[in-house]
């Protein structure tokens, strides 16, 4: 669930308030959004994807709030990581063009994986893409 709106990074653009599909945020003082309805967060990470300032952190825990520490998140490079992995933001290229699903689907169609109860069976290596 959403756990952090960084007061240092937020540029008060209001995008997260607008795009959140479950209306978790409200406009707060100085335009910095507040997490008004955390329990409504569906952990879809869309606010992170759209935040131009990498000011938001959605923790992976979907069913309960957790403690987060902004300095630690920054140090671990966890703010803005999803947006970067989508290739969204100035100077980036959408990673949709690197989507390798077609290779995975082609390989899966040719060689179904061994049933999981056969632990010793090595999976046939596929051609390197």
């Amino acid at each position: 669930m959403i756990e952090l709106v960084s007061q240092d990074r937020c540029v008060s653009c209001g995008i997260c308030v607008r795009v959140c599909p479950t209306q978790v945020f409200d406009n707060g003082a100085k335009g910095i959004p507040t997490i008004a309805r955390q329990e409504d967060c569906q952990t879809c990470f869309m606010c992170e994807a759209y935040c131009p300032a990498d000011a938001l952190y959605v923790a992976p825990e979907a069913d309960r709030p957790v403690q987060v520490d902004e300095a630690t998140l920054v140090a671990e490079g966890k703010l803005g990581k999803y947006r970067a992995s989508l290739g969204w933001g100035t100077g980036r290229r959408s990673t949709a063009q690197e989507d390798d699903s077609f290779r995975i689907l082609a390989l899966a169609a040719r060689a179904p994986t061994a049933p999981p109860q056969a632990p010793a069976a090595p999976t046939a290596p596929g051609p390197r893409p």
Binding site: T95, D100, I104, T113, P125, R128
Partner: peptide, 24 residues
């Protein structure tokens, strides 16, 4: 059971699949 040769492809295919794991 993910073949070694596919591991990079998995990540490129569905960034959101890895997101909760990376964060955790």
């Amino acid at each position: 059971q993910a073949p070694e040769s596919l591991r990079e492809s998995l990540r490129k295919s569905q960034p959101n699949f890895f997101l909760p794991f990376d964060k955790a």
